[in-house]
Amino acid sequence: QYISEVAVNWGSWSIGEATVRLMKLALSDPDISYLHVISGQDWITQNVDDLYQRFENDTKIYMTYEKASEVKKSGEPIIWWQKYYFNYDQINRRTFFGKFYHR
Rank of each mutant, 00 (worst) to 15 (best):
S14N: 05
S28R: 07
S33G: 11
S74Y: 13
K99E: 15
E76A: 14
E56A: 13
Y101S: 12
K83S: 13
N87C: 11
Y65H: 11
D50H: 06
Q41M: 04
I32T: 13
N47A: 09
T64C: 06
Y62V: 00
W80Y: 13
I15P: 01
T45V: 07
V20S: 02
Y65T: 14
S4K: 06
R103Y: 15
S12D: 10
L25I: 07
F97W: 15
D42H: 07
K99F: 14
Y65N: 08
F55Q: 01
L51D: 00
M23L: 02
L27N: 02
V71S: 09
F55I: 07
E5K: 11
A7I: 08
Q46S: 09
S69W: 02
K83W: 05
Q90D: 15
G11K: 03
K24R: 12
F97C: 11
K73C: 11
I32K: 06
D58L: 07
Q41V: 07
D50M: 04
A68Q: 09
Q46F: 03
K83F: 05
N57R: 05
L25H: 06
P77H: 12
L22T: 03
H36E: 02
D31Y: 10
Y2A: 02
E70P: 00
F97R: 13
F55G: 01
D42W: 00
E56S: 07
T59F: 00
L25E: 08
N87Y: 08
N92R: 11
W13L: 11
V71Y: 13
Y2K: 06
S69T: 03
V6W: 04
Q53K: 12
I3K: 08
Y88F: 13
S74M: 10
K24G: 00
S28P: 03
Y52A: 05
D29L: 04
F86I: 11
I78M: 14
K60V: 13
I61S: 04
Y2L: 01
Y34E: 01
R54V: 00
K60D: 06
F86L: 15
Q53R: 12
Q90A: 15
G11L: 02
W43Y: 08
K83A: 14
I3Y: 01
M23Y: 00
K24Y: 03
N47L: 07
Q46E: 12
E17W: 01
S39K: 04
E5W: 07
G98W: 12
D31W: 08
Y88I: 03
L51N: 01
I44T: 10
G75S: 10
W10V: 01
L51C: 01
V71T: 13
A68S: 11
T64G: 11
S12E: 05
I78N: 10
F55D: 03
A68K: 07
S39L: 05
K67Q: 09
P30G: 01
R94D: 15
I15T: 04
K73F: 13
W80A: 11
M63H: 06
S74D: 15
I32R: 05
I78A: 13
D50Y: 03
N92Y: 11
Y65E: 05
I32V: 14
G40T: 04
E17Y: 03
Q1S: 05
Y52R: 06
S28D: 09
A26H: 03
V71R: 11
Y65W: 14
H36A: 02
G75T: 12
Q46D: 08
H102I: 15
A26C: 09
L27K: 02
L35D: 07
Y101D: 12
W80D: 14
A26R: 06
D49Q: 06
W13M: 08
N47K: 11
W10G: 00
A7P: 02
W80I: 14
Y2P: 02
K83M: 12
